[in-house]
Simulated scan of single mutants.
Amino acid sequence: MKRQLCVLGLLATLVTATFAHEGHDHDEAGKKPLAVGNQAQRLADGTLFIPKSAQRGMGVLTLKAASETVARSLELPGRVIMDPHLGGRVQAMQPGRIEPAGPHGLPAAGSRVKKGEVLAWVVPASGAIERANQAATLAELKAGLGLAEKRLARLRDLADTVPKKDIDTAETEVLSLKGRIAAVGGGLSGREALVAPVGGVLAASNAVVGQVVEPKELIFEVIDPDGLHVEATAFDPIPLDQIAAATVAVGDQVVPLSYVGAPRRLREQALPLIFENHAAGAGLALPLGQPVKVQVKLKSTVQGLPLPASALVRNTANQVVVWVKTAPENFAARAIRSEPLDGRRVLVTGGLQAGERVVVQGASLVAQIR
């Protein structure tokens, strides 16, 4: 009996030593949740377990955060506008009907035009009574011109006995009647030429053959293909003397802009800031009126961790977070503070340490793992 009790005590000691050895107890083991299986999953402490195969499937890429000193930036809403020096508009000066200027018809939007090129004709539109009055006036002027020419011829035949001033008066009257006839005749059969004020690309073409237009109606709009103007709107006071430059994102590219100036008059309680870029094809990068986000760079600097904007996601609490790779298959969320840097990057100013590996591609897919 005593031998059996000794054996049972020895077994209990061995079991206790197996499950609770030195430096590890049951409480500490419960604090480290373990992944079950080989599938991407969210662990009990909120971290993620993502196997290498799942990382490759989601296209997860990481980047080591590095501290840098960069220019402070402000993000302002803006829109693309026409360069007033290198662009222009073509408007009708009188009511009439649109006619093509050549055998190829009217130019389409996107066509290149030269300065002084006739884009279309406007045939004046007038009523029957008005045209009848002009025709009557023209007939009267022609009759008066015939009499004046005959009188001038008689005076020239009597040049030896007629004062020179009478001949000069008759010649002036003939010239005056010819000018009036030309003016009235041009009003009846003339047409207005719509001429390109500058060379460039047609940004808009609102003309159709046979279309009736009114005075001041916009027919064509010409822009410079190598000039881009952006107007940013500042609703809060900013130091204008601290503005250095700006950038705007166009797809995957960042287009640099130079600061032109700002008027000293508010428009709709906001101050417009003008930026420009003159480069090959800059004016074709964005259409007129396109809303954009302008990243205005100031002369002052700030230190932080630049990261691609694709690294930032929101969690269930609507906080801006980034996912940090803590182990080859483990990821943890970090709530951060950030500010805009340019059209593609942001500057993390808090919540992240330099040297941590941040998910910069596939972060939105990582955040969806449950």
Results as ranks from 00 to 15, higher is better:
Ala159Asp: 11
Glu221Ser: 15
Ser67His: 09
Arg337Gly: 13
Phe49Gln: 09
Ala203Glu: 00
Val313Asp: 02
Ala136Lys: 14
Pro107Tyr: 01
Ser73Lys: 03
Ser300Trp: 03
His26Thr: 12
Thr349Asp: 07
Arg314Leu: 07
Lys325Ile: 05
Arg180Tyr: 08
Val15Asp: 08
Arg79Asp: 08
Ala153Glu: 11
Leu74Trp: 04
Glu99Lys: 09
Pro51Leu: 07
Leu43Cys: 09
Val70Glu: 02
Leu257Ser: 01
Arg97Asp: 05
Arg156Ile: 14
Ser338His: 12
Leu11Asp: 06
Leu266Phe: 13
Val348Pro: 03
Thr233Tyr: 14
Val313Ile: 11
Glu221Tyr: 05
Lys297Ser: 05
Ala170Lys: 04
Leu307Lys: 04
Leu86Arg: 13
Gly350Asp: 08
Val294Gly: 01
Ile50Tyr: 06
Gly186Lys: 14
Lys32Gly: 09
Ala367Phe: 07
Pro124Asn: 13
Glu68Cys: 01
Val201Tyr: 03
Glu99Arg: 11
Val60Ser: 03
Val198Gly: 01
Leu48Gly: 07
Val118Glu: 04
Asp27Pro: 01
Asp252Gln: 13
Phe220Gly: 02
Ala170Phe: 10
Ala246Cys: 01
Arg89Ser: 13
Asn133Leu: 08
Met58Asp: 05
Arg72Asn: 05
Val321Trp: 02
Ala309Cys: 02
Ala29Thr: 09
Leu286Met: 10
Leu188Gln: 07
Ala335Gly: 13
Thr233Leu: 15
Glu217Ile: 02
Glu99Pro: 00
Met93Asp: 14
Arg191Thr: 08
Arg264Thr: 13
His85Lys: 15
Ile369His: 03
Pro163Ala: 11
Val359Lys: 01
Ala109Gly: 09
Ala120Asn: 02
Arg79Phe: 08
Ala270Trp: 07
Gly146Asp: 11
Arg314His: 14
Lys142Phe: 04
Arg344Cys: 03
Lys299Ser: 13
Leu11Ile: 10
Ala232Gln: 01
Ile181Glu: 07
Leu63Val: 10
Gly102Asn: 15
Ile98Asp: 04
Val208Pro: 01
Lys299Arg: 15
Val321Leu: 03
Ala270Met: 09
Pro215Lys: 12
Glu22Cys: 10
Asp226Ile: 04
Arg191Ser: 10
Gly105Ala: 00
Arg265His: 09
Gly102Gln: 10
Gly179Cys: 07
Lys150Ser: 11
Glu276Asp: 06
Lys115Trp: 09
Leu240Gln: 12
Leu352Tyr: 06
Gln319Ala: 06
Asp252Leu: 10
Val36Lys: 14
Ala311Pro: 08
Val201His: 01
Gly210Arg: 07
Thr62Met: 04
Arg131Val: 07
Ala135Arg: 15
Gly144Ile: 00
Leu266Glu: 09
Gln39Asp: 12
Ala71Pro: 05
Gln269Ala: 15
Lys178Trp: 06
Gly144Lys: 13
Pro163His: 10
Ala54Arg: 08
Val302Asp: 00
Leu218Thr: 15
Asn315Gln: 09
Ala363Glu: 00
Ile369Val: 12
Lys114Glu: 15
Arg191Lys: 15
Ile129Phe: 13
Val7Trp: 12
Ala66Leu: 12
Glu356Ala: 07
Leu271Pro: 05
Glu231Ser: 10
Pro328Val: 06
Gly59Val: 01
Leu365Gly: 08
Ala29Gly: 06
Gly281Ala: 14
Val90Ser: 02
Ser53Leu: 14
Pro95Met: 13
Ala363Phe: 03
Gly59Thr: 05
Val320Gly: 02
Gly350Glu: 06
Asn38Ala: 12
Val201Lys: 09
Pro306Asp: 04
Ser126Cys: 05
Val222Trp: 02
Tyr259Cys: 01
Asp160Ala: 15
Asn38Trp: 08
